[in-house]
Simulated assay, not measured.
Amino acid sequence: MVQLFKCLLKAEKKPIRSHLRSAFIDSLRLTVRGGHGGNGVPKYGGVGGQGGCVYFVAKEGVSLRNVNQKYKTKRIAASSGEDSSKVRILGRRGVDERIEVPVGVQVIADGGKLLGDLNEHESTCIAAGGGAGGCSGNNFLGQPGDQRNINLDLKLIADVGLVGFPNAGKSTFLKSISNAKPKIAAYPFTTIRPQIGSVQYPDLRQITIADLPGLIEGAHANIGMGHKFLKHVERTRLLLLIVDIFGFRLSVEHTKRNCLENIYALNKELELYDETLLDKPCVLLLNKMDVQGARDILKTIKPTIKNLECGLEKCPEEIRPTKLINFERIIPISARSVKRIDVVKEELRDVLDRLAEEKYVPDALEVREQLRIKVGERGPKIT
């Protein structure tokens, strides 16, 4: 019996299977503390060094997984300031703690206060300031640094956000159009964490597409993947909705919805989470057009898709949106067809280029008016 227990104790632990490891982290909770200020010396009027601060800096190529591995205790503290002395009247400042995080991270304190939105490379945010050094104003006693609990909340930055219900063909489409290698299978929820793929063009233009975990009805209320999915849509420039032309049914306990009802349901979920998402430009992909009967369905529903308002009366009340999404393009595809995928690539580029022109190329009259104001020209306004 003793030998049996010894064998059990010596038995090596089995490594966690790779598909169960969390390869992607988009939220991390930390405790941060600024350094304590050094004490001053009343006799010489010395001033203690200020405590170091904890700050975050956005870097390309970094992940929250790196931060999680480096700070396993989830506690980060800067060093304290140096005490003043007769040898050094002004104490040295404490050393700052600099943490590199991925671009797109929001630093949020308890209570929901936004401390920083690091959406550009090299942007910084101080999460915990160091305490003041001891001086005549505080009886020469160094002050403690800030201490707070924070959440690092990553929202992916991509040109295109791929949105759809489970098993709509998002992963197959992403694999076909980009260099990403998502897991693909014929059952819902194959994608359980975001994937980002890059679409390359012959002239070296590049577009990034984020394939996000399939949402379900009630995602706006954090059901299923909920907010873990929807928050990543906020930073995308273009929404790419993909819908199975034959409809979708999550399980035997759920109602099967046809293609048109699924479009309304996706519209409703986005509206309930954040109505401003519906103002983003959107392209609709009708997938699985290579299956027999798909053309007949498309012929029936296409007029309604082009004018969603005319189909609202027949839409079930629980998925009926108040604000309707406007599709820039409606493209029938088969995610496995190279020819159709090439069409989508060109359409996406065309829409994104047009959006860029509208945003960055000002109207000629507007430029002239701005020049008139800058040079102080007097006279009637240009119309």
Rank of each mutant, 00 (worst) to 15 (best):
N149V: 12
I108M: 10
Q195E: 07
V103S: 00
G81D: 07
V283R: 09
V41K: 08
I325K: 02
I196K: 00
C315R: 11
V343I: 13
G34C: 11
L272T: 11
D353P: 09
L152I: 06
I242F: 01
I209A: 04
V160D: 05
P182A: 07
G169R: 06
R205E: 06
S18H: 08
S85Q: 08
V105T: 14
N119R: 15
K280P: 08
G379F: 05
L250W: 06
L9H: 04
H121F: 01
F327P: 04
A168E: 01
R33T: 15
N119H: 11
A180N: 05
L215G: 00
N222C: 09
L250K: 15
L154A: 08
L30W: 04
L250Y: 12
L4H: 13
V2E: 15
I76Y: 12
Y360F: 15
E97Y: 08
K10H: 01
L118T: 00
R249V: 04
V351K: 04
L64Y: 03
K6C: 02
Q50H: 10
L250P: 00
L114C: 14
K228V: 05
K6I: 10
E217G: 03
Q206Y: 01
M225F: 15
V344Q: 03
C53A: 13
A132D: 12
L324P: 08
V199Q: 02
P316V: 13
A210S: 15
Y55C: 02
K86D: 11
L8V: 15
R21D: 01
N66M: 09
E309V: 03
G51S: 08
A221F: 05
A58C: 03
P303G: 00
V367W: 06
G38N: 09
R193M: 03
N287Y: 11
R336C: 06
P194F: 01
P281E: 13
N139H: 12
T124G: 02
C310D: 13
I25A: 03
I76F: 09
S22H: 06
R368E: 14
G81F: 11
S337Q: 12
L240S: 06
R249L: 00
P332K: 08
A180C: 04
R354W: 07
A185Q: 10
S176H: 03
G247D: 05
V291C: 05
S123W: 05
Y71A: 07
K302L: 15
K70F: 09
N167K: 11
D96C: 08
R378M: 04
K6P: 03
V57P: 04
Y360K: 00
L30D: 02
G91L: 06
V62A: 01
I108Q: 10
D83G: 07
K10F: 06
